[in-house]
Amino acid sequence: MSCHNVVYSVIKIVHDFIPMFFLSLKRTNEENLNFIKSYKPQNNDVENLRILLHGPVGAGKSSFINSVESVLLGRVTGRVMTDTISANSFTKKYKAFKIHKDPKSFYPFIFNDTMGFEQRNGMNVEDIKLALMGHVTEGYKPIPGVQLKESDQEYNSCPSLDDKVHALVCVMPADLVSLISDEVVKKMRDVRLAASDMGIPQLAILTKVDEACPEVKNNIKNVYESIYLKEQVDKFSLILGIPQNCIFLVKNYESELQTNEDINGPILIALRQMIVYGEDFINNL
């Protein structure tokens, strides 16, 4: 189905986009930004809330980290290396990224970036499961088909609560939801079930919304008024089983030279919910 730019009536918006509608309506960018800036884990055993990103190659995991940093710093950044032409994962190591709050301190949350899933190669599912439990150290370079072992130097045998993952986020391009291979779906579903067994909250972001819908490309404000994007949220929810109110639509900073509030808004909404879900998980431990 082609992308349609149809403005729903208020009743239709509330029916189809209840969580998104109320989040975007009631919480301005400033309110979300203030929440994020004032956030601190309540559990004294946790210094940083850890958010792990996973998904297929080219989904925009690294770009999302850059986009969050861009929003929080007020300028477009590119600290996490990305690639626009490779068919294979550009991220080769399991890395952790913290964002400066000021020159002497960081925000109390960490993003863990992972190698993308491929049909036959890419990130090992079992390594992701170990990462969820905190057994994978930063800098580990996954080898497709070879699982990290307890005897390996990069294996953390005694992970602290701070080492463990507190929120799992699946990243998927909005324009490729219908084209994702069964093998990659199986990998993502396997990771989801493992996280569920551990009680780890799970969310998802659909990236590249501007590439998926021309009307959104013309005006990012149309992101939650697009029938096509709503359909992709529905499809992705059915594919992985993630509730629709845990799936967020974002456009990463990729071609822009300056930040703007319309792009910032969906990113801040998604980030705030990651923090809220992760904080609830930490407090329930």
Rank of each mutant, 00 (worst) to 15 (best):
K208L: 10
K208V: 01
K208I: 01
V209M: 13
V209E: 04
D210F: 00
D210S: 07
D210A: 03
D210Y: 00
E211M: 13
E211T: 06
E211C: 06
A212D: 08
A212G: 14
C213H: 08
C213L: 01
P214Y: 05
E215H: 15
V216D: 11
K217D: 13
K217L: 09
K217P: 03
K217I: 01
N218I: 04
N218S: 11
N222F: 11
V223Y: 15
E225R: 15
S226M: 08
I227R: 12
Y228F: 15
Y228A: 06
L229S: 03
K230I: 09
Q232N: 05
Q232V: 05
V233L: 09
V233S: 03
D234L: 08
K235D: 12
K235Y: 02
S237C: 07
L240A: 12
L240Y: 01
G241K: 09
P243Y: 03
P243V: 04
Q244I: 11
C246Q: 15
I247T: 08
I247R: 08
L249W: 10
L249T: 01
V250R: 07
K251Y: 00
K251W: 00
E254V: 11
S255N: 11
S255P: 00
S255H: 13
S255V: 08
E256F: 01
E256M: 05
L257F: 14
L257H: 13
Q258P: 00
T259W: 05
